[in-house]
């Protein structure tokens, strides 16, 4: 497994987490929980965008592995 595909796997997990977390942030009735969920959502979005950047760089450096 190349580095890029490993990162992609983590990225997929994080995106899944984001979805589940967003669902909970919407359906919870407690204000405090909602706040914590939303804070985590923001941080997760930041991590996701940084990982995507990193994948772009890696694919540019090693175009032979692109798409894996």
């Amino acid at each position: 497994m190349t580095v890029a595909s490993q990162i992609k796997k983590t990225l997929a997990t994080l995106k899944g987490n984001q979805g589940t977390l967003r669902l909970y942030a919407l359906q919870t009735r407690d204000k405090e929980s909602k706040l914590v969920y939303n804070e985590t959502l923001e941080a997760t979005a930041q991590i996701i965008s940084d990982l995507e950047e990193r994948i772009k760089v890696l694919e540019y450096q090693e175009p032979q592995y692109k798409g894996n």
């Binding site: 490993q6 796997k9 983590t10 997990t13 994080l14 899944g16 987490n17 991590i47």
Partner: peptide
């Protein structure tokens, strides 16, 4: 658990 896994990956 998924968050834990992602953290370990990072």
């Amino acid at each position: 658990a998924n968050f834990e896994k992602s953290q370990a990956d990072l």
